[in-house]
């Protein structure tokens, strides 16, 4: 039968028109979808121009999270070269060779409003708390696939490579301390107040007032994380370009929204797969009938049992 392709498309079309309508409507709602900001969103404001690079926050973070200091570098100092399975918070130095302005930068989880790590996590081990907005890791659900280490645009979650019970480590804003009414470890020891903790709205207004007070002090007069990557709860002010500090320019759309748009649309309510499945079944039924007929004929010809 030579009308196969037409048949297929016709049957898809028949079942597909209502589905297509649903998808279009759904797509429109997706486009208008904005990223919700949690009701009690808390975060950090780090002003790189005030930071003196004392690294008290690095030591305090390890202590607050009951993690042994990472001395794997020289077996003497707590000197992680980057975030890792023992380090949730690190101070790095950007020092250009031409002697122009240098800056320290504190790197920890950005607690994005639409986190790519949570978007990619298969069983929602990394999930965003709906009230505080803190992105937490649940050891009961994690399968150790390390997809979060790949999807996070800031390269924050780190996997524990040694041992048979590995965990994923990243800053969780010291939630146990917050519950007791304490500040996170890093902000409680910062001697200059370079990093401060508070509700996101308060931090944003503080950042903007600093920019207004000293225009020209901060790079592009903007707060990184206000809109970047769809908005984050860890905000940055800096004298030098954010990219030089390792904070990529991602644009106002969050990574999941930008990259998974079609994936989300095509699988919306599983409509398209279901439609395809039904039409495939129809087509194959017809095919199968023809195939079985031929097989039986062949069986009669050869005297050997048909191989279906």
């Amino acid at each position: 039968m030579a009308i196969t392709r037409r048949e297929l498309f016709v049957s898809i079309g028949k079942a597909g028109i209502p589905a297509a309508v649903a998808l279009t409507v759904g797509a429109e709602t997706l486009q208008a979808e904005t990223i919700p900001i949690p009701s009690a969103a808390v975060g950090l404001l780090y002003d790189a121009s005030i930071c003196i690079g004392c690294k008290a926050c690095v030591a305090a973070c390890a202590e607050a999270n009951d993690t042994p200091p990472d001395t794997r570098g020289d077996q003497l100092h707590q000197a992680p070269s980057d975030l890792n399975d023992l380090t949730r918070n690190v101070i790095k130095l950007y020092k250009p060779e031409d002697g122009s302005a240098f800056s320290y930068v504190k790197r920890q989880c950005m607690h994005c409003l639409d986190p790519a790590c949570a978007a990619g996590c298969p069983f929602q081990a990394l999930h965003k708390d709906p009230e505080s907005g803190i992105v937490k890791w649940d050891s009961d659900k994690c399968i150790g696939c390390r997809y979060c280490t790949i999807t996070c645009p800031y390269h924050v979650p780190r996997f524990q490579w040694m041992g048979f019970n590995p965990r994923v480590t990243k800053c969780e804003l010291c939630s146990p301390r917050l519950e007791k009414g304490l500040q996170p470890g890093c902000t409680s020891v910062c001697p200059t107040g370079a990093v401060i903790f508070g509700p996101r709205t308060v931090l944003l207004s503080e950042a903007h007032s600093r920019i207004k007070k000293e225009p020209g002090r901060y790079y592009q007069g903007r707060v990184y994380g206000e809109k970047d990557n769809g908005g984050t709860q860890s905000l940055y002010l800096s004298r030098v370009a954010f990219e030089k500090l390792g904070l990529p320019e991602l644009g106002p759309e969050s990574v999941p929204a930008r990259t998974l748009r079609w994936q989300r649309r095509l699988y919306q309510y599983f409509a398209l797969p279901a439609v395809l499945y039904v039409s495939l079944v129809q087509v194959i039924r017809k095919s199968l009938k023809g195939h079985e007929q031929e097989a039986h004929e062949h069986e009669k010809e050869t005297g050997l049992r048909a191989q279906l």
Partner: peptide
């Protein structure tokens, strides 16, 4: 252990 006087890039 405490951090040293050096900084990672």
């Amino acid at each position: 252990a405490t951090p040293p006087d050096t900084y990672p890039p």
